[in-house]
């Protein structure tokens, strides 16, 4: 009986540690009390990617749901903006546009012109803009508004779908490998041809 009383707490502690360890690896089933399967872009507290920034006279919180959207999957941008000095909410129409974020496309103009995805007014203290991308890519969503004659531009990068599996390094290594391989094959053929010609001459 005595032996049982000593080992039981140790075993219980070990069991508790194991359960705690493994339970930390499982994903949360509920987000703030709401079942995760019922969440979508219109939920009040969806899992998302958010940034907080200060621009001009405003504190801005910018949130995108989902953080990594897939093509043909609806998403949403939420913006909250309050004045730095008195905390008053911004009450001004905000225009949302989207453009290609590839460096060359953006700089040289290879990308299409920015596309307006909508203009939103404040709704319960929040500006909500829905979106749906049909193709994979890197995009920049811009929220634009003017206040007291000053333009405000907020850019938020968005990766839709998985990034290209062959990055610049992969392409470079692949190209160099292919080039050296081809040259090696050509050179081997050349040497073989020369040897045959020398054999004929001899």
């Amino acid at each position: 009986m005595n032996k049982m009383t000593i080992t039981t707490p140790i075993l219980s502690a070990l069991l508790l540690c194991t359960v705690t360890l493994f339970s930390s690896l499982t994903y949360a089933h509920h987000v703030l009390g709401r079942p995760s399967y019922s969440l979508n872009e219109d939920s009040n507290t969806p899992p998302s990617m958010a940034i907080e920034t200060q621009i001009g006279e405003y504190f801005v919180t910018y949130m995108v749901f989902p953080a990594f959207p897939k093509p043909n999957e609806p998403g949403r941008v939420n913006i909250y903006a309050t004045r730095i000095d008195n905390g008053a909410m911004l009450d001004q129409a905000i225009t949302f546009t989207v453009r290609d974020d590839t460096f060359w496309g953006e700089s040289i103009g290879g990308a299409t012109e920015p596309e307006v995805i909508g203009q939103q007014h404040i709704d319960d203290g929040v500006y909500r803009q829905g979106f749906l991308f049909k193709s994979r890519g890197s995009y920049i969503i811009r929220a634009y508004f003017e206040k007291n004659g000053e333009p405000y531009e907020l850019d938020f990068p968005l990766q839709v779908g998985a990034a290209s599996p062959v990055g610049p390094i992969g392409a470079a290594v692949g190209f160099i490998f292919f080039l050296l391989l081809m040259i090696n094959i050509v050179q081997r053929k050349r040497i073989a041809r020369t040897k045959i010609q020398q054999g004929h001459t001899a």
Binding site: I176, I183, V186, Q187
Partner: peptide, 17 residues
């Protein structure tokens, strides 16, 4: 280094066209 397959010695490889 990539093409000659040699770090510093003169390369005799046929890796160049």
């Amino acid at each position: 280094w990539l093409v000659n397959h040699s770090i510093w010695r003169r390369s005799n490889s046929n890796s160049r066209l």
